[in-house]
Computed example of a mutant assay.
Amino acid sequence: MSSQPAGPKLSATVLVVRDGDALPEVLMVKRHYQIDFAAGALVFPGGKATPEDSSPDWDAYTDGDFGPVQQDARIAAVREAFEESGLLLARHKAQRGTNQPLVGPETAEKLDPFRSAVDRGEQSFLELIRDNGLVLALDSLVHFGHWITPDMMPKRFDTHFYLAPAPPDQIAAHDGRETTDSVWIGAQAALDAEEAGEAVIIFPTRMNLKKLATAKSVADAVERFGAETVITVKPQQSETPEGEPCLVIPEVEGYGQTIELLSRVNV
């Protein structure tokens, strides 16, 4: 009797970007070596959605109207960015609204001691935002990608990728629990580091780095990717003409690659 593949879990990942000397830089964190998924890999902040991320009580504390799945995933993306980097994509409730400024370093530093408790589920993120007179700036996120893990993988995720300009003057720092290092790095520089054997980067992260590498600035990335239709990518298992197991994604996805050898898929 055949078994059904495990259903993918809603997840979110956020590419926080800032302008570098020549090209945009993206915040990446290194996963702890004892984590059960992507151990030791260089990734963007992200993770699984929690039940609280879908609470209707968030409606009063979020900017933007995106519908159930998109709102849940965007809340998860903002929460994960806070947990793993300390960056807070939020506004003061008295200054809410699209194009209004995000909170400054003083607010982010005030809430920083709660990062670990939010991560462990000991502190409600919703209550933390509410009690500090804030709203999440969900409208500051640009939907960048949507990947669903192949059926044959033991851990499966339905992951929405978002692009977010870095909050001015806030300082990013890894959490020391799930992540052990953090770096602002150009997309192509990260790809070059993996090619040189200096970094481990999992397949979806690599593909989204390749997509980001085509942007010339943060403004260019926000304008161009914000105008694009996000197409769901679900790699399919196949074989190369030489008989090597591989994953295949359609050319229309625009990631500059259609085949990935399973031997290169780090999980």
Rank of each mutant, 00 (worst) to 15 (best):
T159S: 13
T159R: 12
H160D: 12
F161K: 01
L163A: 02
A164C: 13
P165H: 02
A166L: 09
P167D: 09
P168F: 03
D169R: 11
D169T: 12
I171S: 11
A172G: 00
D175I: 02
G176W: 01
R177W: 14
R177M: 11
R177P: 00
T179G: 05
T180R: 10
T180Q: 10
D181Y: 09
S182E: 14
S182H: 15
S182V: 10
V183P: 01
V183K: 15
W184R: 05
G186M: 07
G186I: 03
A187N: 07
A187Q: 05
A190V: 09
A190T: 03
A190F: 06
A190R: 02
L191K: 00
D192G: 01
D192N: 14
D192R: 10
E195T: 11
A196I: 06
G197T: 06
E198I: 09
E198M: 11
E198L: 12
A199K: 08
V200W: 13
I201F: 05
I201E: 04
I202K: 15
F203V: 12
F203C: 10
F203I: 11
F203N: 11
P204R: 01
R206F: 14
R206T: 12
R206L: 11
M207W: 14
L209W: 10
K211H: 07
K216F: 11
K216W: 10
K216H: 14
K216R: 15
S217K: 00
S217H: 03
V218E: 00
V218Y: 02
A221F: 07
V222H: 07
E223I: 08
R224E: 10
A227G: 09
A227P: 01
T229K: 15
V230T: 09
I231K: 00
T232R: 07
V233P: 01
K234D: 07
K234Y: 01
K234F: 05
P235D: 09
P235C: 08
P235H: 04
Q237N: 08
S238C: 10
E239M: 12
T240L: 07
P241F: 07
P241T: 03
G243W: 01
G243P: 02
G243I: 00
E244K: 14
P245V: 05
C246N: 02
C246D: 06
